[in-house]
């Protein structure tokens, strides 16, 4: 999942820094992720993992870092298993 997220971030994040150089917990907003790019990234992730972000997870924190995104997607997948 981490690799796929990095791949999408490279494609859609429009970051000035190469994604390979970012640690999992690096702040993506500090790295230059704009609100427009973050929406594009969310759409890419929804499509790639076949998930839909519920509204309570659509905030800055959920997309703050690669690790946060991974955690957010895991959370949605786990909730789906329970349901």
């Amino acid at each position: 999942m981490n690799e796929k997220i990095r791949e999408l971030l490279a494609k859609l994040g429009n970051l000035p820094t190469p994604v390979e150089t970012l640690a999992d917990d690096a702040d993506l907003y500090t790295a230059g992720l704009s609100s427009f790019a973050s929406v594009q990234l969310m759409l890419g992730i929804e499509d790639a993992f076949d998930v839909e972000f519920p509204d309570h997870l659509l905030n800055r924190k959920s997309f703050q870092s690669i690790a946060a995104i991974e955690n957010t997607v895991q959370q949605i997948l786990a909730a789906r298993k329970v349901a």
Partner: peptide
């Protein structure tokens, strides 16, 4: 422009 981009993922209540 900004709202329209958010509405691609945010579902209106």
């Amino acid at each position: 422009g900004n709202t329209s981009s958010m509405l691609l993922v945010h579902k209106q209540d």
